[in-house]
């Protein structure tokens, strides 16, 4: 009798332990692919779309499948590329990597001939100005895609980093270097 009882208690304990561990791992465990998660962690997370993907999450998935180079993220620059390469166990050539953040287009007033080509190329209608007039870029609407700069016949559109001011300055992620 005692033996049966003790066997039963230990069995119940074992079952309970197993069940709890199972539950715990289900609740806490990584639901996503760990590599993708690490890649997402390494990306800036600004969802700016300059890599050509809608956001960093999608960029990470593409990276994990080998569909994108580790240098895909312009805002992340070299630091992020190094991290990505480390996670994927690959190497990359840092030589041709531009180190820049999200961009805004700016029309150089002395170059603009008012041809209006840029207006037609802009996917977000971020450029104002009529034919033969000086054109300006609406900072709010520009997504920094660079399409306008490509079509400008005088090379009068520059893509520049968004200036950091006291209003848009943010704390960097500790241990990741800072903006």
């Amino acid at each position: 009798m005692t033996m049966i009882l003790s066997v039963a208690v230990v069995a119940a304990l074992g079952l309970g332990l197993g069940w709890l561990l199972g539950l715990a791992s289900q609740w806490l465990g990584a639901t996503t692919d760990p590599v993708v998660e690490r890649l997402t962690e390494a990306l800036p997370g600004s969802q700016c779309g300059q890599c050509g993907y809608p956001g960093c999450g999608q960029a990470a998935i593409a990276l994990s499948k080998g569909e994108a180079p580790v240098t895909l993220c312009p805002p992340g620059g070299r630091v992020v590329a190094e991290k990505l390469a480390e996670i994927l166990g690959t190497t990359f050539d840092p030589g041709n990597l531009p180190d820049r953040g999200p961009l805004l287009a700016r029309v150089r007033t002395d170059y603009c001939i008012g041809c209006s080509r840029c207006i037609k190329s802009c996917p977000t209608d971020a450029i104002l100005g009529a034919t033969k007039q000086l054109h300006v870029v609406l900072e709010e609407a520009c997504i920094g895609c660079g399409a306008c700069a490509e079509v400008c016949p005088t090379g009068g559109i520059d893509l520049e980093g968004i200036p950091v001011t006291l209003r848009n300055w943010r704390w960097h992620k500790p241990g990741v270097g800072h903006a």
């Binding site: 600004s46 209608d125 943010r170």
Partner: peptide, 19 residues
């Protein structure tokens, strides 16, 4: 920043749609 980006993305979508 994400809220801001979200806002801008919506704005962009609207602009693109308007275009």
């Amino acid at each position: 920043a994400r809220r801001e980006a979200q806002r801008k993305a919506e704005e962009t979508r609207k602009l693109a749609e308007a275009r």
